[in-house]
């Protein structure tokens, strides 16, 4: 007795295998086409994010009740009594340079001591500030962090005659905000009002913050 083979199954199987194989090949071809583009997308998304960190995130700064800051400022301003404005600026930072332009070009309040804690070396900038009657104290990033707990710039601090820190924060409400508000802040505080600290938009100064804010070292 002869058993006839199941021709349908016998013929259908190779067709099915061929069909699956063709489908897999198409999928593989499509994947290989898109793979470089997927890598490109991930890479540029990473770069964009790295660039945007300090663009829309406010940098950390010490609180006005911070003991380290109070001690540092107390030591810095110990030689003279009275109201004092302290500006922590960084020569490599665009936002700091903008604040320098503002300090130099604006009419500063009378009977106010102004000290600039300047990180980086820029004799021209230093000369402009000194010419305006400001005391410039050159510090390195490490010292700024160790003595005052400051890691980002530009940071504005306002200290009353009793050396109590009345304000610590940024100069503007927004990143590159159009209005630098240090004069208004000082006027209000001296008038007896409390002022909420503005966020610090600018540049990382300490190495620790630079690592976090610029992980790809694109801005260094």
């Amino acid at each position: 007795m002869t058993v006839s083979p199941n021709t349908e199954a016998a013929e259908g199987l190779p067709i099915a295998i061929a069909s699956t194989s063709a489908r897999e090949k198409r999928w593989l071809r499509s994947f290989l086409q898109w793979l470089p583009l997927i890598v490109w997308f991930i890479a540029i998304a990473g770069v964009m994010s790295a660039l945007a960190i300090t663009h829309w995130m406010a940098l950390p700064h010490p609180d006005k009740r911070d003991n380290q800051l109070a001690a540092g400022l107390g030591e810095l301003l110990a030689d003279r009594p009275g109201w004092a404005a302290v500006h922590a600026l960084y020569t490599d930072c665009q936002c700091s340079q903008r604040v320098v332009d503002h300090l130099v070009n604006s009419k500063r309040p009378d009977a106010l001591r102004e000290v600039v804690l300047l990180v980086g070396h820029d004799p021209d900038l230093q000369a402009r500030l000194q010419k305006k009657g400001m005391q410039v104290v050159s510090v390195d990033a490490e010292t700024l962090f160790q003595r005052f707990g400051i890691e980002g710039a530009p940071l504005f601090m306002f200290v009353d005659p009793k050396h109590a820190v009345r304000y610590v924060g940024g100069y503007t409400r927004r990143k590159q905000g159009p209005e630098i508000e240090d004069l208004a802040i000082m006027r209000e505080i001296r008038g007896g009002s409390e002022v909420a600290d503005l966020p610090l938009f600018g540049c990382a100064v300490s190495e620790r913050l630079k690592e976090l804010a610029d992980p790809m070292a694109l801005k260094r």
Binding site: M57, A58, L212
Partner: peptide, 18 residues
């Protein structure tokens, strides 16, 4: 923006401000 949100340590950066 989401990537940035996930990436950045909340302990360091101030989200509320912006």
């Amino acid at each position: 923006h989401l990537l940035l949100w996930i990436w950045l340590p909340r302990s360091v950066f101030n989200y509320d401000a912006s």
